[in-house]
């Protein structure tokens, strides 16, 4: 299990969190249909580091961006976000 450092609650067990999607899969409001389809339906899915949106569902319920390595599970950064901070 991973230990995720919630920006609001401090280090908490991963079982309190739910993975949502990657940061680059959130379509901006003005995206065309083709752009939105690409963003929603494809992933870079790197065998390395990616920025992911997680939610502290069974804690403070806030969204956050977790920068995590997909092989080692090492979390290099967790930062708080609000809806306005998403791309």
């Amino acid at each position: 299990m991973m230990l995720i450092n919630c920006p609001h609650c401090g280090p908490r067990a991963q079982s309190e969190f739910v993975y949502e999607r990657t940061v680059d899969s959130v379509a901006p409001a003005g995206a065309s249909n083709d752009e939105a389809m690409q963003i929603l339906f494809t992933r870079s899915n790197p065998r390395g580091v990616d920025d992911e949106i997680w939610r502290h569902t069974f804690g403070c319920r806030a969204w956050m961006v977790v920068t995590r390595h997909r092989v080692t599970n090492e979390i290099s950064q967790v930062r708080a976000v609000g809806p306005e901070a998403l791309p």
Binding site: F41, N45, R47
Partner: peptide, 16 residues
């Protein structure tokens, strides 16, 4: 698949 297709510059509807 995501990794290998990525070598060809493709993004797939796949998450590992």
């Amino acid at each position: 698949s995501g990794h290998v297709a990525g070598l060809a510059g493709l993004k797939l509807p796949v998450e590992s």
